[in-house]
Write a protein that binds this DNA or RNA. Structure first.
Lengths: 147, 147
DNA sequence: ACTTTGTTGATTAGATTAGTCGGCAAAGAG
DNA sequence: CTCTTTGCCGACTAATCTAATCAACAAAGT
């Protein structure tokens, strides 16, 4: 029941890109450095996000990547689905055909409730929320250091 | 973000044992047959549950396993913790030391919320609840066939 | 004693994860 | 127009985890 590095790194990378948006695209190399992720591995992770249209990329000098939608319109559930494949705890919940017991199985019902609880959390948080939280957090920590 | 067969088979096996409780212990071989789990693999899965004291085992002829506590006192969260190791989506939530960013990281906060939502579901359901649900479900399905 | 049933440690095939590497493709800079 | 920058893509790999299997042993009834 663990998230892989794909989900963790990818989410952090997207947040980093959202935080550093400006007129110019953000360099993947810089994201990788700031987030301490291997640059080569980061390219890997970013690819499905570009294909899905969450990010837009520009090649060549002064290139990089940028969000193609407002951060407030990108849900965490969507990000994780792209990075991890799916967030279901078991396959039979969304695909009853994989197990002949599905109809009579109460453990399946429970995994369904578990998935719903997870979906509710992840649908309710957008990349924009993360950006805002990060700004608040950085400010609070800054004040703490001042005192 | 998937449960492994350990969590899935193990939960089903425990439910099966709870449903078939009587004066005599339940045979693992029978559990394995009913749940279509390899008998050899099932022994594997059952071991930590015995060590943790959820199940009691009796060896020899007429032996088997039985619940050592009332089913209503066994929470799903406990079962999964024993079978899967833990249900945390990332390690840093419960163990901030593994990452130097923990203090400043808002994605970590989100994974914490995700974990809480999962814990709430799994703490709120006991093996006794599963037994009851299964009985209701079987009855409903039986009536449906009658009509 | 004999049989049944659970216990344990070793072993294994296959899948998944977390990367790395090399070369290609586009696009701005000079 | 060609050079450099930056992303794109397919192949490859080491390490780890999963899902079993097997053989030998350990109790406990019959």
């Amino acid at each position: 029941m663990k998230l892989s590095t794909r989900g963790r790194y990818g989410t952090r990378a997207l947040l980093d890109i959202a935080l550093h948006q400006s007129e110019r695209p953000v360099l993947l190399k810089e994201v990788a450095r700031r987030q301490e992720i291997s640059p080569l591995y980061l390219e890997r992770l970013i690819t499905p996000l570009i294909t899905a249209g969450i990010l837009r990329s520009t090649r060549g000098a002064r290139g990089g990547v940028s969000l193609s939608r407002p951060a407030g319109e990108v849900r965490l559930s969507e990000i994780l689905r792209l990075l991890e494949g799916s967030i279901e705890p078991v396959e039979c919940v969304n695909n009853p055909g994989v197990c002949s017991r599905s109809g009579a199985c109460v453990t399946r019902d429970v995994w369904g409730e578990l998935q719903k609880a997870m979906d509710d959390v992840l649908n309710g948080i957008t990349l924009g929320d993360l950006v805002e939280r990060q700004r608040v957090k950085d400010q609070t920590r800054h004040i703490m250091y001042d005192i």
